[in-house]
């Protein structure tokens, strides 16, 4: 493969570039905020213009409004948090009526994250989301399939492929399948998403986890268990992104514990074409914007095309 820098040298000099392209959608920079950590963007718009970001991924949307789980929904662990919100959201109709248009005006790519409790739900959501202004769709397949005994759609490669294909058949927008790390071989699930027609994959979703209070002998979360995220999961995520990069040809969006522009560089070196910033939004309300700025400075300083990093990992012999 010819390196982009050499192409640009042939055209007369290197010009630093931060833009990335995923399934035909151009992002001004590779920083996207992760679903469930950023609402629908309005709160963070108090701190910085959303146009600082390459994109934002909405809170997970379902056909009908969902109340979510009782409190407590969050527990802090060393360098991480465990959450169990239970997909509380106002439903797709409410989103289309109140947030969709506003988000479309923020000069950033909007990725609608959709979820369901059955294959029919996903198909209905895949159709419904065609009405939105979102440029892309991200499939949350970590939800339990209520019609198939409650195992999450994202566990077995066959169901990853099935749900991806079902949505691809009805959805006119590029579809990104978000992979769960709670599986035996994530590369197999990446291939399954590709076979199902996914235009890209994002990983990792949260790691299944529990926090316990030794005094009460009870789990801290009402729901007993939840999903671990934050800086502590980064090494797991990097390895999984690299494994998937070597298994599929479709673009990868990497996430898991990103708190700095150097983390972004590491994810891209392991094969991510873009990244998502999640838990760090809680620690630093300006965090995602700052990472985008730091990355821009680095790319200018190095006079490089950020795309040249993708998958450039040099393994030790």
């Amino acid at each position: 493969m010819q390196r982009r820098t050499s192409i640009r040298v042939e055209r007369g000099g290197i010009v630093s570039n931060l833009k990335v392209n995923i399934a035909g959608v151009e992002f001004k920079n590779p920083i996207i905020t992760a679903s469930g950590t950023f609402g629908f963007g309005r709160e963070f718009n108090n701190f910085y213009p959303l146009s600082d970001l390459g994109g934002i991924c909405t809170k997970g949307l379902t056909l009908m409004p969902r109340d979510g789980n009782p409190a407590p929904r969050i527990a802090e662990t060393k360098s991480g948090i465990i959450n169990s919100v239970g997909l509380q959201n106002p439903g797709i109709e409410h989103y289309l009526a109140t947030d969709d248009k506003w988000l479309a005006e923020q000069d950033t790519v909007v990725i609608a994250n959709i979820a369901g409790a059955s294959l029919d739900d996903y198909i209905a959501m895949g159709e419904k989301i065609n009405e939105s202004n979102a440029q892309m769709v991200e499939l949350n397949i970590s939800c339990p399939n209520v019609k198939a005994g409650g195992m999450a759609f994202g566990v077995l490669p066959a169901s990853v492929e099935q749900v991806t294909r079902a949505v691809k058949n009805v959805c006119k927008k590029p579809v990104i399948t978000k992979l769960s790390p709670n599986v035996s071989c994530i590369a197999d699930n990446a291939k399954a998403a590709q076979n199902g027609g996914a235009d890209g994959i994002s990983l990792i979703n949260t790691l299944s986890a529990m926090a316990v209070n030794y005094k009460t002998r009870k789990p801290i979360l009402f729901n007993n268990n939840g999903g671990l995220s934050g800086a502590c999961v980064k090494p797991v995520a990097l390895k999984m992104v690299w494994d998937c990069y070597n298994a599929v040809d479709i673009p990868i969006i990497g996430l898991g514990g990103i708190t700095s522009y150097t983390d972004v560089l590491e994810f891209m070196i392991c094969g991510a074409r873009a990244v998502q910033v999640g838990t760090y939004n809680f620690t630093e309300p300006m965090g995602a914007s700052q990472i985008a700025k730091d990355l821009e400075n680095y790319v200018k300083e190095q006079d490089m095309d950020i795309n040249d990093l993708v998958g450039s990992l040099i393994l030790n012999k």
Binding site: G36, Q88, N281
Partner: peptide, 17 residues
Amino acid sequence: EQRMGCGIGACLVCNCK
């Protein structure tokens, strides 16, 4: 009061009925 995540209304962690 409730255990909070972001503190600004985005993460839906600190719910009350």
